[in-house]
Design a protein around this nucleic acid. Structure first.
Lengths: 313, 313
DNA sequence: ATGATTGTTTACTGTAAGTAGATAGTTATA
DNA sequence: TATAACTATCTACTTACAGTAAACAATCAT
């Protein structure tokens, strides 16, 4: 027995006062109504409706049950409706995870704009420089550089290309080895951004020429920290873009960093753009979200917004 | 989809935190759990649980729905339980219909005794001298003389034999024709109890001899009312035993009446037992109640009690 | 009486709910 | 790194049952 249907049928029979009327109202046969009522009565071990072929009268228990059941059915359908409705009109809480530097430089402005369009979506932005488990932590969307997925239950969507620049502070460069081609990099102190998809392999293009440099090659062999002079890559790896920039500004070495994080420093001369004719490969910003047949509209809307927000034109 | 089952499954999954645990708890396969959750999500057009093969986390909508649904399920099962329980422990309202004379003479004392045993059953006794429609009026039990049923949705159960006596007042008999055999009755003024199963055909036995007298035979032809003297049956028919007795005491004629209604008058001499060697056929008292596969325990208990109460030993 | 109306019964059918077993993804352990 | 243990999902299949149609039964109106 589909109890919920049986109860709905019972309710309708009581409200319309006849099996036939309920049958027509519900688009069922009289037989089906009869069966539903019988099954419900069997289940409750109690008569609910006394009936002849011409008259019916609700019993005391029937009336009691009707009163209970009506409010229960109403509650349930309102609960259903509120979920279904919320799945069309986006609202509720959107939990976003993002690495700190990107959160400040990129995502926060985007979110501020987003909130203007969808004020009824509450946003909880979590700055996190670790890759956390979205499902375990109940995160709706994570913004990350690199679309690789740790988990097949996640999906990713590319938001934006991030052009990166190779740069260092004048202070570092003053005492540093010469740098005329990418191949010179392993002799330098290279600051690594550990959340990059391949932190130590830096790729550069010049016209059709491609060079992949393992800037970490000398790291483990000669880890001469402290002094920022002479050759050898000083082992410094951070998972935070702001800290990376601070390290570079403190003359610690050369970094490969998203251009947008250092625009001000480059124009002010606090950082120098190195090997400008060698273009690093673009990173990309991805939105990562738990895959689900029924993606929440708030998630869909938010990602759509970000794609639009970051699209070039 | 059996939505109620899907909701129960969802609830259990949330409470146990795993599909497998819920499957074992509910005695279903993991596949069934998975299907139920998927169907519920499809119906609500919204993800309820984000899941990998190892972890699951309830979504915002899922939490919302869970909160609603838990109280709804609890409400429903408590409504069910209260009905099922009441179908075992008799209680509630018992509506009884009975002809007035029997109500006062027979049923009321029985009910007083019944109430001592089942105080939690509320009784509403309706004295009615018409045969009313039990189902239309929402009557649980009617007590009547004669087990004939107007309606196939009713059942009857014999409670008690009612021995009747032929009697009249001395005042009537003083001026009345002679009465030595039942055949003399049509010459008398016979008072009819219209609720009897055959009001005008009075049956008498003497040893193996049976006589059926149509006491109404002369009624329509000579309706000499007013005077209580001489021959011819005066047409008087009542549907109330007390009124019938009052009519006899007022010297209006001869009546065939349940012995128990006139015991006091017979011993006091206010009424005279006529033709004592001719025994009228016994009437019987029946309980009539709406037929239902699931008879209410209050009805069953009450009728059982009456049968026991009226049984001879 | 007759026909209209209404609930029940019966035989049948199609849907879908459940299962078993294979599959795929994830974590722990050696 | 490979393996084992665990979990959700998918696929194919079986089975149960909800609904229907049609005949039946009972009641009421005319």
């Amino acid at each position: 027995m589909d109890k919920l249907r049986a109860i709905s049928v019972f309710r309708r029979v009581i409200e319309l006062g006849s099996f036939k009327a309920a049958a027509e109202d519900l688009g069922l046969s009289k037989a089906a109504i009869s069966k539903n009522i019988n099954e419900l009565e069997d289940y409750l071990q109690s008569p609910l409706i006394n009936r002849t072929t011409r008259k019916m009268h609700i019993t005391e228990n029937g009336q009691l049950y009707y009163n209970h059941v009506r409010s229960i059915l109403d509650d349930l359908s309102s609960a259903d409706l509120s979920i279904i409705e919320s799945s069309h009109r986006p609202s509720g809480l959107l939990r976003i995870s993002v690495p700190m530097s990107m959160g400040i430089a990129v995502l926060n402005p985007a979110i501020c704009e987003f909130k203007k369009h969808y004020p009824e979506i509450t946003i909880e932005l979590k700055m996190s420089d670790q890759y956390i488990d979205l499902i375990e932590q109940g995160i709706d969307v994570a913004i990350r550089g690199g679309g690789e997925l740790k988990n097949s239950n996640l999906k990713s969507r590319k938001l934006k290309s991030v052009s990166r620049v190779l740069c260092a502070s004048p202070g570092y460069l003053k005492n540093a080895p010469t740098l005329t081609t990418p191949e010179d990099l392993p002799t330098h102190s290279c600051l690594l951004y550990s959340l990059s998809s391949s932190p130590t392999n830096w790729l550069f293009r010049h016209d059709d020429e491609v060079k992949i440099i393992d800037v970490d090659s000398g790291c483990n062999s000669n880890s001469n920290s402290g002094t920022n002079s002479n050759s050898g890559s000083g082992g410094y790896s951070v998972d935070n873009g702001i800290a990376l920039k601070q390290a570079a500004l403190a003359d610690l070495g050369i970094m490969l960093i998203p251009e947008m994080l250092v625009e001000a420093e480059l124009t002010a001369g606090a950082l120098i753009h190195l090997l400008p004719e060698w273009k690093p490969d673009d990173h990309a910003l991805y939105a990562i979200y738990p895959y689900h047949r029924e993606t929440s509209p708030k998630v869909r809307i938010f990602i759509d917004f970000l794609v639009d927000y970051f699209s070039p034109e």
